[in-house]
Design a protein around this nucleic acid. Sequence first.
DNA 1: CACCAACTTGCGCGCCACGCATCTATTGCG
DNA 2: CGCAATAGATGCGTGGCGCGCAAGTTGGTG
Lengths: 204, 204
Amino acid sequence: MDDTEPRDLRSRNRQAVREAISAAALRLALQHGPGGLRLVRVTDIAEAAGVAPRTYNNYFSSREEAICAFQADQARRLGRALRSRPADEPLAEAITAAVIEVFATPEPDRAGLAMILSTPELQGEALKAFTMAEEPLATAIAERTGTGARGNLSCQVLAAAVAGAVRVAGRHWLDTTNPPPFATVLRDALGHVLPPTGEGGAST
Amino acid sequence: MDDTEPRDLRSRNRQAVREAISAAALRLALQHGPGGLRLVRVTDIAEAAGVAPRTYNNYFSSREEAICAFQADQARRLGRALRSRPADEPLAEAITAAVIEVFATPEPDRAGLAMILSTPELQGEALKAFTMAEEPLATAIAERTGTGARGNLSCQVLAAAVAGAVRVAGRHWLDTTNPPPFATVLRDALGHVLPPTGEGGAST
DNA sequence: CACCAACTTGCGCGCCACGCATCTATTGCG
DNA sequence: CGCAATAGATGCGTGGCGCGCAAGTTGGTG
C-alpha cells in the first residue's frame, strides 16, 4: 500500500533524511562489527548522512534507535497491513499474509539482521520496535474478530505471540545456513501460535 | 530451589548490594514519577544505596537497568523453575505453575509495575528482561517435551509466546481496578498460548 | 508578493560511562 | 594461625552525548 507515502513534500523530505541517517548508521555499524558499536561516533553517522550532528539528534536520540529505524517502520506497518486484508479471509491466513507482506517483502538483509541480533544493545532496540507493533495489531485483531472489548486479553496475548513468533523466526532464519525463503519460516513459526481456521481465540 | 543462593560469601554480598542499589533506584524513581526519571541522578541512587557512584557503575550501566534488575532476576529464574517441576506433570500445567511461582509469588508491587509500564525507557529495559527468560525457557521446554533439536522453532516460539503472555498479563492486571490475584490473570493469559494437555506443540 | 511555520544548524552546558591507579577485605594455602 | 594472592570498591580524570537556546534558511500559504 502506498499510504506510507506522505502527502506533504516537507514530510517527504523528512522521511528521506530519516532513512538516510538510518542507512548510514547501519552501514557504519556493519563496518565496525558487533563489538565495535561504541566506536561508531554520532559525528561519523551525521557526516555519513550529510547532516549536522545536532540534526541527527533531532531524529534519533541514540545510535541504536537510528540503526533499528527500519525495523520500527516495519512494525508500524503491521497493523495497517492486517486491516488491508480482505474481511472474509480467515484470521490466521490474514495475519500470516500481513506479516509476510511487511517482514518478508522484500527478503530481509541478512547482514543487517545478523548485526542486530548479535549486538545486545541493538537487540533491545529491535525488541522495542517489534513490541510497538503489538498494540495496533491487537486492535486490528479485535476489530476483525468482532471482539468489542479493546482491553481484551486474548487479542493482546495473540498479538504478542505473533510478534514473538516473527522475532524468533528471524533469529532462526538467520542461524540457518543456506536458508529457505523467510516467508516459509514465518509461516512455520506463526503456525504454532495462530488459532486453527474458524476460531478467533476470543474466549473471555 | 535455593540453589539460586550462592554459598560464597563474596557472591552473597554482591547480590545484596545489587538488590540494595536496585531497590534504591526504584524508590527514587517512584518519588520523581514517570516523567521525572531524568532527574534521578546516579549520585542519588548510589548515595541512597550506601555505595560510591563508581561502584554503582560496576553493577549497572544505566538507571533503567538498575530499576529493572528485579524483573531481570525473575526472568532468569523461570527456566530453572520449570525444570524443578515434576517430570510427569503436563507441559501446560508445569509452565503455568512455574510462571506463577516466579512472577506471582509474592504478588507484584503495583506501584513499581505502574512506574515501569508508564515509562518508555523502563519499558524497553523490562522488555529485555522478559526476553532473557525465553532462551532458557525454550531449552527447558525442549528437554521436557523430549524434542532433541535445540534449534527447534516450536519450542522457541512457545517460549516467546509465554513470555509475551506474562508481559501482557502484567499490563492487563495493572490496568484493572480492584484487580484479581495476579496468578488468575496469568492463568487466563497463558491459556491462550499453551497447547492443550497432551500436545507438546512440537510438530517439526 | 509578503507572511508564517517548520526545520536545520551552531553553541554551550551538564551528566554520565569508562579507563587507570589505589586500597581494603575475603579467600586459599602452608 | 599467619601470609600471600586476588577480587572488588573507591577516587580521579577524560571524552562523548543528550538537549535547551537562539539565529538562519527553506517550504507552504493567503
